[in-house]
Write a protein that binds this DNA or RNA. Structure first.
Lengths: 242, 242
DNA sequence: GTACAAGTGATTGTATTCAATCTCACATCG
DNA sequence: CGATGTGAGATTGAATACAATCACTTGTAC
């Protein structure tokens, strides 16, 4: 029914359904609600309420909140509760700046690793898995665009960029990108990113450069991709404030 | 006895001792142990052992582990436990690259904010507090160097850079820097950073540029500072491998 | 009427307990 | 001899119960 499956990897895991742990599920759900506007900044989130909402106890909720706090999406004060952080709109300039550096490094490393994997014979199972996820995301994006469901693009966008990070094999960069990437989408909040369609097409060329193991081109394409995304945001933002 | 106090803010808080929550303390302790080599990469960390070591129950330990996992210092698999992540030595190049962008943005923003705070009359209490912490860190560093306790510099180094991030007022950048900064020091592991003394002196000029509200100079000085740190690392690393 | 203080309710922090899952050694079979 | 299945032990995941702290209300004194 939904053009976007929450778990696209389900049919190909041979050992069992292996549904994600409740904590992980709740954590992703809350983060998603924050990024896409269901939980507006400043909202007070109490552990009991979240626990009741998701039908679990407070302990896993607390752990999810600690992770989200480390990622910067909620703020907690001892004994005083947690609130959704304010959208870092003042940091937009810096966030895009850092993102450009981060994503460029990620793309370069992904291309290098792809070349290395093929040079060493057959790529590892881990690598293929990440590559397949990326292929599915790209296809989902095309389908979503064909159906004119642009509202679904932001989430796919995050998944593409995180997918590239996975392909880079660098846990450090992936962890950092997860936060930056989420925050950038957060900036757009409920708004629809008008550059969405065009932006999505660029993903294919980035993917091609990575697959070709062309590190320099992958880095340059990604840097340009992010840079244009930044310009688009700043244009809309300054237009809205004047 | 120790030239470096764990909590230098204690004597000046008027409302009470307010010692940090056990969870926070344990979390910082574990992270510190990881960064400075007491807990080597690959070490298996069980919740029960940590709980016993710090005299608390497993729940706060679990929350600390979730935070450290989000920060990339430990890796956890469901029902299979947590291990200390491997030192991201392969990512060194990318980490320094990203750090340079991140720290430059932070320094620039800190200088801008300092200028804004003074322009608007008196700086906020929050700003003064961050500034005082930074002053104490700088003095501690000088003292440590005078006593030739270079082994204490890495921790002060982290605290200086995090202090600048605090001064920038950007929660997003601070959260990112906390991870990068820790990982960079982690690269040096138990090794002593030979550039330590010289590097520390540069902190004073960065601080001066921030206080003066000179955003361009603060950014340039910080970029150069980080860049040289990177060169120093790569030199030592390549020298060690050849 | 206002300021201050104590009390009360709500919320988070922690401990304890039980259930679910994984790891690893050992035995069995080809 | 090697591969595979099974079981016990260990470890994490989650639920419940209780303690500590905070925020807000309410009452009282001035």
């Amino acid at each position: 029914m939904q053009p976007l499956q929450p778990e696209p990897s389900s049919p190909e895991s041979p050992d069992g359904p292996r549904e994600p742990a409740p904590k992980q599920r709740v954590q992703d759900e809350i983060r998603r609600d924050i990024i896409f506007g269901t939980l507006p900044p400043g909202t007070r989130v109490t552990e009991a309420a979240l626990a009741a909402k998701y039908g679990i106890s407070r302990v896993p909720v607390r752990e999810a909140l600690r992770t989200l706090e480390a990622e910067g999406f909620v703020e907690s004060k001892p004994y005083a509760g947690s609130t959704v952080s304010k959208i870092p709109v003042d940091d937009a300039d810096d966030l895009f700046f850092v993102r450009e550096a981060l994503e460029a490094a990620t793309a370069r490393r992904a291309a290098k690793r792809a070349a290395a994997q093929f040079a060493a014979g057959a790529p590892s199972a881990e690598w293929w898995k990440a590559r397949r996820v990326l292929a599915a995301v790209l296809d989902d994006g095309d389908r979503v665009i064909a159906q004119d469901r642009l509202d679904l693009l932001p989430e796919l966008n995050i998944r593409f960029h995180l997918g590239v990070a996975d392909l880079s094999g660098s846990a450090s960069l992936t962890a950092l990108l997860r936060q930056i990437s989420g925050k950038i989408e957060w900036l757009y909040a409920t708004d629809v990113n008008t550059r969405g369609k065009q932006s999505w097409r660029e993903h294919r060329s980035i993917m091609a450069a990575i697959d070709a193991g062309n590190a320099a081109e992958a880095e340059a394409l990604m840097a340009s991709h992010v840079h244009q995304s930044r310009e688009g945001y700043l244009d809309r933002f300054s237009a809205a404030t004047e």
